[in-house]
């Protein structure tokens, strides 16, 4: 290797955002980058790589191995290998919390509950069914319907004093319920909290949870109130990694490091 400063890259091309993590051989996170996935996954991944390497103080020549994950994992030009986001989230979480946990990941397009044992091995996983209810796409759709910027939703939900109850599984039907509540003159903050609670309900009905729970994903990163609501729902503290949105990319980079060592 000589004087070369090795870099291990993990890139998670999600339906909404592309996330990239740069690790060194000592398993230290050196750099990262997040941007909208857009319509050209390959170009977005390239842009993330440039920005991530710059932050890490590395160059393309330092890259030893790259693993890609997420919906667009097969579009990444510079990837040596792919892994599913389920495996990468499990590995990324175990990096921060080396213990048996249930991981709740709320992403743009899908939700996952992944159970890992105390050695970090996956015991089981569940993804949401085809429907987008309970995912980031659901909140995006509702923010447009309520004409509220997505980034304002967390703050609004926190102001709620009388949360509205939304019962439907279906995003479209939930939209109708929202309209009904607007018509009744309900406060927007109460509706938004109802939407958040709906996300929590959709996730909780996917699978049972073990004692320790971790929450990850872009939706969690941008709406921390969801974690508080989930804690209230299950009656115990939930762990959140330092970079919840990067968990998949971090797991992919750790895979890259692991593979290159074997």
């Amino acid at each position: 290797m000589g004087d070369r400063a090795p870099a291990y890259i993990g890139v998670d091309v999600g339906s909404s955002r592309t996330k990239l993590a740069v690790f060194d051989a000592a398993k230290q996170l050196l750099g990262w980058h997040v941007r909208k996935s857009g319509t050209d996954f390959a170009a977005t991944a390239d842009a993330c790589l440039q920005a991530g390497l710059q932050m890490a103080g590395r160059t393309a020549g330092d890259i030893v191995y790259t693993v890609s994950t997420g919906y667009g994992r097969k579009n990444v030009r510079f990837a040596d290998e792919t892994r599913t986001e389920i495996g990468c989230h499990a590995k990324g979480c175990y990096y921060y919390f080396p213990m048996a946990v249930s991981i709740i990941d709320i992403g743009g397009q899908d939700n996952k509950i992944i159970k890992i044992d105390d050695r970090g091995q996956r015991i089981s996983f569940k993804m949401n069914r085809k429907c987008a209810a309970g995912t980031g796409a659901f909140l995006e759709e509702m923010s447009a319907r309520l004409d509220i910027p997505l980034e304002d939703m967390d703050g609004l939900a926190r102001k709620s004093t009388d949360m509205v109850k939304l019962g439907s599984f279906c995003t479209v039907f939930s939209g109708t319920e929202v309209l009904e509540n607007i018509r009744r003159g309900k406060q927007v903050s109460d509706i938004v909290k109802g939407l958040f609670f709906s996300v929590i309900k959709r996730v909780m009905e996917m699978d049972s949870l073990t004692e320790r729970v971790v929450m990850t994903g872009g939706v969690v990163a941008n709406n921390r109130y969801l974690v508080q609501m989930a804690e209230e729902s299950i009656g115990r503290k939930i762990l959140v990694p330092e970079h919840p949105q990067l968990t998949g990319a971090i797991g992919a980079a750790l895979y890259a490091l692991e593979i290159s060592e074997t």
């Binding site: 919906y71 892994r83 599913t84 986001e85 389920i86 495996g87």
Partner: peptide, 19 residues
């Protein structure tokens, strides 16, 4: 059917079996 969901689920399941 969502082919993408199926593929990701199956690949993840095989990864789990590999582990």
């Amino acid at each position: 059917i969502s082919d993408e969901q199926t593929q990701t689920n199956v690949e993840a399941f095989i990864e789990q079996l590999e582990e």
